[in-house]
Each structure stands twice: as structure tokens, then as C-alpha cells.
Simulated scan of single mutants.
Amino acid sequence: MNSEIKTQQLTAVLEVLQLAERLKFELRHSWLSNGRQESVAEHTWRMSLMAILLEPLLDEKVDLSRLLKMIVIHDLVEAEAGDVSVLDQIRNPELRILKQQREELAINRIREMLSKANGQEIYDLFFEFEEKQTFEAKVANAIDKLEVQLQHNHADIATWEEIEYDLSFVIGKHVAFDETFILLKDLIEKQASEKLKMAGLNVEEIRSRAISSFG
């Protein structure tokens, strides 16, 4: 590869990195234990750490390099499309469709920006995550769901909306493919239960309502 082509590729990489910088200030619905709102970049970072720490404990061998790429890439589109919380999507299902459309436009733009480098690989990894068919994609999605609940557990319960009480108990369907994730889900769910009890809430009533509402 000659220097001119490599320079063009590096220029495209810098453009994507400039776009990605927005994730440092694109805020999510979640709050931190110090009372500050979480950024998308922080969520992605801890997902990556979880993947590294959990990899040796999984039932099947996972391609860690591919898994980490998928995790880092999956929210990159939010630098352009913005973050739409699950709560907003539950309240207004049309937002889910709009979110998908915006993210597809964003990943297509990123593929074009990196067309001379690895744009197609990034595009393919984004949709692999979305389709949840490969083992790596299932792992990435399980980590995504568990990290969200873990962050809620760390935050002051005053930052929780009532619907989040219920959502603490519906992660099981996302982790059923691997015993490690089932056990981790149980531990994280136990943390949530204790937090709700300390707030004077009826955990069994919430759990029953959650199962009835969300399956």
C-alpha cells in the first residue's frame, strides 16, 4: 500500500474519530453513583470491560476480538443518530422505528466514510449485533442489557422511573443461552431487589407485575 492511499485512509479514520467524540457528551437515560448523567462512551467502555472479564467464564469459546469490535461499534451510530432510551420506545413504539431508520442512515454514512479502509467490516458488525444470531452477537447483547441494569443499581433510586422497577426483572430472556449470564443476571437482579426493598417497595409485587407486563 503506497503512502498516498494510506494517508487517504487515515484521513477517513480521523473523520470518524471526530464523529465518535460526540459519544463523550451524548447522554443516556442512566445516572451514575455520583449523581451525574452517563454518556454513551462510558456505557460502551464498561461493556468492553465486562466482555474481557467474562470471556474465560462463558460456556462456549468466544472470538474476543470480534466481540470487542462489535461492542465498540454498536453505539457508534448514536454519535449521529442520538440516543433514544428504551423507556421512550416503550411509551412511543413509533420511536423504535424512527431510531432504526436513523441508525441505518448513520451506519451507511460511516461505511462510506471508511470505504477505502474497513467500512464494510464495521457495517457488517453493526448488523450482526442487531440481528443477534451469532454467539458473539448474543454475548454482546446480553452484556448490553446487564450493564444497563448494573448502572441503575449503582445510581440513586430517586433517578429511577417506576417502569424501571419492573424492567429490573425481565432480563432473563436475553441471557438464557449461557449459564454464566444466567448466574450474573441473578446476582444483578438480587442487587436491584435489595435496592427496591431498602426504598420500601414490594419486590414480589413488582416482579409479578413485570412478568405479566413484559413476559
Rank of each mutant, 00 (worst) to 15 (best):
L10F: 14
A210F: 11
R28Y: 01
W31E: 01
A199P: 03
E26K: 01
E103D: 08
N153T: 08
A106Y: 00
E130G: 12
P93T: 04
L201E: 08
K145E: 07
D59I: 10
K138C: 05
L105P: 01
V77K: 01
N92D: 15
L54G: 12
F129E: 04
D75V: 04
K24I: 00
R28E: 00
E104N: 15
R91K: 06
M198E: 13
E21D: 10
Q133W: 09
R109I: 02
D166P: 10
K173E: 05
D59R: 10
V16N: 01
K145M: 07
A192M: 09
K6Y: 14
D178Y: 09
I163P: 06
D144I: 01
I171R: 06
S65M: 04
S168Y: 14
H29R: 15
D186H: 15
K61P: 09
E38S: 03
E136C: 04
N153W: 10
I110L: 07
L167E: 03
S168W: 15
E38Q: 12
N153C: 15
R36M: 06
F181L: 04
T11V: 02
A140Y: 06
Q89G: 06
W45I: 03
L187D: 13
I110F: 06
R66M: 14
Q89P: 12
R28S: 00
V170K: 06
A51E: 00
L187Y: 04
D144G: 02
L54P: 08
L146A: 12
I206V: 13
R207T: 13
D144Y: 05
F127A: 13
F169K: 09
F25K: 08
K190G: 07
L98S: 05
R46W: 09
N108P: 11
R102W: 02
E164D: 11
N202T: 13
L150W: 15
Q18W: 10
M70Y: 11
E136H: 06
K116V: 00
L114V: 05
R102F: 04
I143V: 04
I5G: 03
Q18D: 06
S65H: 02
E26L: 01
V175F: 10
A199H: 05
E104F: 14
T44S: 01
E130W: 14
L167Y: 08
E15C: 12
A117W: 06
E103R: 08
E128M: 02
S212R: 12
F25T: 09
R209E: 07
K132E: 13
S65W: 08
L53A: 05
K61C: 03
M198W: 13
W31K: 02
E128I: 02
L183I: 11
H174I: 06
S65T: 04
V84W: 09
L95M: 07
D144V: 02
K116R: 12
E38A: 07
R22A: 01
D144T: 05
V86M: 09
S213F: 09
E80G: 00
R36N: 10
L105R: 10
I206A: 14
N153M: 10
K61E: 12
T159P: 02
F126A: 07
T180M: 08
V84I: 15
I182D: 00
G172N: 07
I71Y: 00
Q191R: 14
I110Q: 00
L57A: 06
A12D: 03
S115H: 09
D178A: 09
R207I: 15
A158W: 01
F25I: 11
A210P: 11
Q120N: 12
K190A: 14
D166N: 12
S30I: 05
V72T: 00
K185W: 11
V148H: 10
N141E: 13
E194Y: 13
E131R: 12
